[in-house]
Amino acid sequence: MPDRQHADETRLVQQAQKGDVEAFGQLYEFYAPLVFRFLFSHLDDRLDAEDLTEDVFMRVWEALPGFRARGVPFGGYLFRVARNALYDHYRRNRRRSSDAELNLEWEDNFHPDPAESVPMNIEHGELRASLAKLREDYRTVLTLRFLVGLSTEEIAVAMRRSAGAVRVLQHRALLSLRQELERQESEENDRQTFKEEPLNGV
């Protein structure tokens, strides 16, 4: 993740609050990949994640005059908006996007280079399948921490919790993910054994 200290974030936020579109553009260029990662980790469709990323920034632009830093990190604020936008998206597309109906045979919408995109799609599918088995708050904290790279304090703002509560949540989420990965590995081993058995018989 790029070093946000060098982005002169506070100055850009203040300029954007006054209506400076270019300053907001710089904030967008810095944060859009992170917001996209967060959203894409919750969605099957890359185009949905792209649309929603732009929607998040439009919401932030409109609400920015009301943002008062006072020790609140902009990143945390931004991801709080992103989380709300994601809930709204689920609400609008409940049948299509709900995790209960997670379609693992998702289709890719963009093929820049088949040699590169196929492994990436497999990894995205693996991620979605593993994360979908976790509770929503576990999924959110793990995504924000290890896929987006936010600090505990930023996640606390995004999830409206204390930093201590986020640390405990993160620990429990990691434990849960670990158990899920072990379960998947065990199932995979069972499948391999099942495939090999007929050959052994021959």
Partner: peptide
């Protein structure tokens, strides 16, 4: 478990050119 996630970060990256193009669109 944390490392397993972090190693898959690239799978969630936006497609090349998306950020620049969408920034221009937004601005």
């Amino acid at each position: 478990a944390a490392n397993w996630l972090a190693q898959r970060r690239a799978a969630l990256d936006p497609r090349p050119g998306y950020v620049r193009a969408s920034r221009q669109r937004l601005v």
